[in-house]
Structure formats: structure tokens, C-alpha cells
Design a protein around this nucleic acid. Structure first.
Lengths: 209, 209
DNA sequence: CTCCTTCCGGAGAAAATTCCTCCGCTTCGT
DNA sequence: ACGAAGCGGAGGAATTTTCTCCGGAAGGAG
């Protein structure tokens, strides 16, 4: 009894996930599912067939995003011996994947996510930050939380609707400005305000909706 | 015939404008007007009384935002002889005013805005950028467009709903990172991608909706 | 303090949007 | 070429959003 899934079905599922990632980032966790289907180039019924309701779709999007981000950190660490270079590679890669902003957007629409899911990527990134700081390459007053939220800021599309190509090019451009600001050599003032880890950020965000 | 406007009416108008600024930034140009009224602490009828329709409200919000931003540049120039310090002051002030992100959000929902409105602020900021670059303080490969869009990235609330205080503190913190990355001393690579002025940005954004 | 004018708030009908299922047709894989 | 799996879109139900109407509250002049 070959339990086979058809190729077009797999491809559609993939395109729906990608479209959902974009639309959720642009329009928030309550974005209309019709628009996701439209952007994926499928009918709305296909979306409902693959994901019985919004929360199932959200869950799948978050899971895919976290896995992709984790893989990107792992790849960056493997490819670059210099920890700051690894950080830099990760940031640009995360922008290309378009994977960062959707995670905080959907995390609290997705109850009881497995904490093990985010653990590995968080730990890897944290290690990268620490070793870049030990090597004197990354300014000592930033945290993993800053890194993550800066990438979120960089990867959200700007309001006003730029064409995708310009949007992406600007993001990489601005990432390089931010990365230059993150080097130890760039420090001119000690950063104000709360130095929050990922966990502290999640704890804070419990308060407001 | 004292043509007087009552004080509570003026106060309500102001609170609606402030709420609209926030809500438009968070939920986009089609945000429900009910939510704006609710956040302003007024009834929905009061909103409609002051602003006959969505586009009148949007127009008023944009106008107020542009005027406030222009005043902020002017004040920064007046207060700081050092052009980079003026830039820095402007960035932080713009974050406090919460005024940057709403402009691109609403600009194309507001047809036929007076170009003279944005002209002064744009010219002032452009002059500031140029003189900071001439003085060798600001990296030469950034444009006013970069400045503006970076401030937009910094002033949008992060997805996931942090409490307002944390949100603001993080924004100022990240602004300092970005500002350090904008100094001439920070340059490690030439910035990739398009170096767009404000006008070029507006021209680009005509394409996609 | 009182009266008149201006303004406010919320109810609720109408309009618009969004959800989500059903079923005839298409495409895949063998 | 046949059977099974998957697809798309129509369309009614449910939800959200718009926007007006009017009884009552609140500001301000005298």
C-alpha cells in the first residue's frame, strides 16, 4: 500500500507556507487566509486541505521558520571560523530566508510550542555572540536579544510597499550599517536601556497583546 | 458671534490623532476606525465628527507627522553645532515623537499631498547629512534615504507586542547601535545595493501596492 | 447659577469582509 | 488508460466594519 503524497500536493503545501510567511509578516497574525492562498497561487480549498485552521498553519510556519533559522546559524558557524564573520553571514542569510520576523509575529498565536524547538538555535546564536565578544570583535554591551530583534527590524518589509528587489537590497544595505555598529571598534557610548536575552524578551511580551 | 471651539473638542481631536498615528503604524492604512476611537478613549461618533472619512483622518495624521518631524530636524540643527550630534539628536527625538513610520504607511493612501509639506524637512535633513559627511563624521556611502528608512525601521513597534516602555527603550538602544554604524570610523565595507534619495524611494514605491 | 450651544457616546442597521464547505473537474502515478 | 488523490472556485453563513441618529452631558457667556 504505497502511501504516496503527490508531488503537486507537496509543492502546493510549500508555496502556501512561503506565502503565509510573507503575509503574516505584512499583515499580522490575523491576516486573511484568502490572501495567503491567492499569493500562493492556489485555491482557498487547497489551503484548508493542508491546514485545517489558522492555528495549524501558523504552527507550521513558525516551525519551518525556526528550523530554517537554526540551520542558518549552524551553517554560518561551520562556514566562518571568525565569529563576527559568522554573525554577519547569519544576518544576511536570515534576511534572504525572510524567516526572522514571522517568529515573534506568530509565537503567541501558537500556544504550547515546544520549547526545544527554539532552544538549539538560541543556544548557537548565544554562543556565537559570546565568542565574538570574547574575541573583542563584537561590542560587549549587546545581547543575543538585541541581535535577534535587530534582525527582525531589518527583515520586516518597509511600509509603503517597495518592489521586492529594492526592499531586499535595502535590507542588506542596512544590515551592513547595523553590523558596522555592532563591532567593538564602533563603540562611542554605552548602550542605554534594557539588555534583554531572548527569554527575557519572551517574558516581557507576555504582558501586552 | 464668538466662533469658539470647545476645549474638550480640541482635546478629543488631539487624542484621536495620536491614537490614529499608533494604530495606523501597527495595523496599516486600513486599520479599523473603531479601534482608533477606542484607543483614543472616545466614541466612534466623535471620530467621524472630526474627520468625515478615513482619508481625511489619514491626511491629518500625515500632515501632523510631517510637521512634527520637520520641527524636530530644525530643533536638532539649532541645538547642536556638530552635524553628527544633530543627526543623533534628531533620530532619538523622532523615536520619541513616534512620527516616522506613519508617513510612508499613509503617504499613498493620501492622494495629492502638497509636495511643499515634505520639502522643508527633507531639505534640512539632506543638508545635515551632507555637512556631516563633509566634516568626515558620517560615512560617505549613506544617503538621506537610508537615514529616513533606518528611522522607520527603528520606530515601528516590534511584532509580538512588548509593553510600551520596553518597546521604546529598545528602540533608543538600537538607534545607538545604528548611529555608531553610521559614523565614518565604523566603515569596514562599502555599502551594497541602491543608494536612494527620498525622491527615488517615492518613485520606487509607486510600483507595488 | 442658569441657560443655551456645542459636543459626546453608544446602539444598531447596512455594507463589506472573511470563513469554510461542497462537489464537479483535473492531474498524478502506475 | 484507469483509479485515486488533489484541485479550484462558487456561495451561504458568520464575523467585522462602517457610519448615522438622537437623547443626554458638558462647556462657556452672562
Amino acid at each position: 500500500m504505497g502511501r504516496v503524497t503527490r508531488r503537486d500536493a507537496i509543492a502546493n503545501r510549500e508555496r502556501i507556507l512561503a506565502a503565509a510567511r510573507e503575509v503574516f509578516v505584512e499583515r499580522g497574525p490575523n491576516a486573511p487566509l484568502d490572501e495567503i492562498a491567492r499569493r500562493a497561487g492556489t485555491g482557498i480549498a487547497t489551503l484548508y486541505r493542508h491546514f485545517p485552521d489558522r492555528s495549524a498553519l501558523a504552527r507550521a510556519v513558525v516551525e519551518a521558520a525556526v528550523l530554517a533559522a537554526t540551520a542558518a546559524v549552524r551553517a554560518a558557524v561551520a562556514a566562518e571560523p571568525d565569529p563576527f564573520a559568522a554573525l554577519r553571514r547569519y544576518v544576511h542569510e536570515a534576511l534572504d530566508l525572510g524567516v526572522a520576523a514571522v517568529i515573534p509575529t506568530l509565537l503567541d498565536s501558537v500556544p504550547q510550542t515546544d520549547p526545544a524547538l527554539t532552544a538549539e538555535g538560541g543556544a548557537l546564536l548565544d554562543g556565537l555572540v559570546r565568542s565574538a565578544q570574547s574575541a573583542g570583535l563584537l561590542r560587549p554591551d549587546v545581547t543575543v536579544g538585541d541581535l535577534g530583534t535587530l534582525v527582525v527590524r531589518l527583515s520586516r518589509p518597509l511600509p509603503g510597499g517597495l518592489p521586492a528587489g529594492v526592499e531586499a537590497a535595502l535590507a542588506h544595505r542596512h544590515a551592513d550599517v547595523v553590523l558596522d555598529g555592532l563591532r567593538s571598534a564602533a563603540v562611542t557610548t554605552v548602550l542605554p536601556g534594557p539588555a534583554l536575552s531572548f527569554d527575557a524578551l519572551r517574558a516581557e511580551s507576555a504582558g501586552t497583546g
